[in-house]
Computed example of a mutant assay.
Amino acid sequence: MADAPVKGPSSYFPSIEKKYGRSIAEWQALVRQNLPGKHMDLVSMLKTDHGMGHGHANALVAHTLATAKN
């Protein structure tokens, strides 16, 4: 049986790593350094300071904040 496709924010991770040249762990550490912060403020930081596209930034922040709550 084939593996199920990755869904949700983490489905963006391979393209984020390829396009922006950092591992997801590095990006998540950067987001965590800016906590506490509102979701959209963190997205804006990634877009403005690191040139990340909105969809990639939003997925990264959403996943990072969701895992921080666990």
Rank of each mutant, 00 (worst) to 15 (best):
T64H: 00
L35D: 08
M40G: 02
K47G: 02
S15E: 15
H63S: 12
N58V: 06
S23A: 13
A62S: 14
A57H: 04
G53L: 10
H50Q: 09
S15C: 09
R32T: 07
P14A: 10
T64C: 12
L46Q: 04
K18Y: 12
K18P: 09
A29F: 05
H54N: 12
D41C: 01
H39G: 00
A62Q: 13
A59Q: 02
G37E: 06
L46F: 07
I16V: 15
V61Y: 03
N58R: 08
L46E: 01
A62T: 14
T48N: 10
P14C: 07
S15I: 06
N58L: 04
N34C: 08
P14K: 09
N34H: 15
H39Y: 00
G21V: 14
H39F: 01
M45L: 15
N58I: 08
K18V: 13
A62H: 02
D41S: 14
G51D: 02
M45N: 06
T48A: 09
S23M: 10
V61C: 05
P14R: 00
G37H: 02
H63V: 12
K38W: 03
R32S: 03
W27Y: 11
N58T: 03
Y20Q: 05
A62C: 05
A59T: 03
G53D: 10
H39D: 00
L65K: 07
K47W: 00
L35Q: 11
D41W: 01
A62Y: 01
Y20G: 01
A59M: 04
R32A: 05
S15K: 15
E26D: 14
V31K: 04
G51M: 09
G21N: 13
P36K: 07
A25Q: 15
M45D: 02
Q33T: 13
T64D: 02
E17R: 08
N34E: 14
L65T: 03
G53R: 11
A29S: 15
A29Q: 14
L35P: 05
A62P: 02
G53E: 12
L42M: 06
H50K: 11
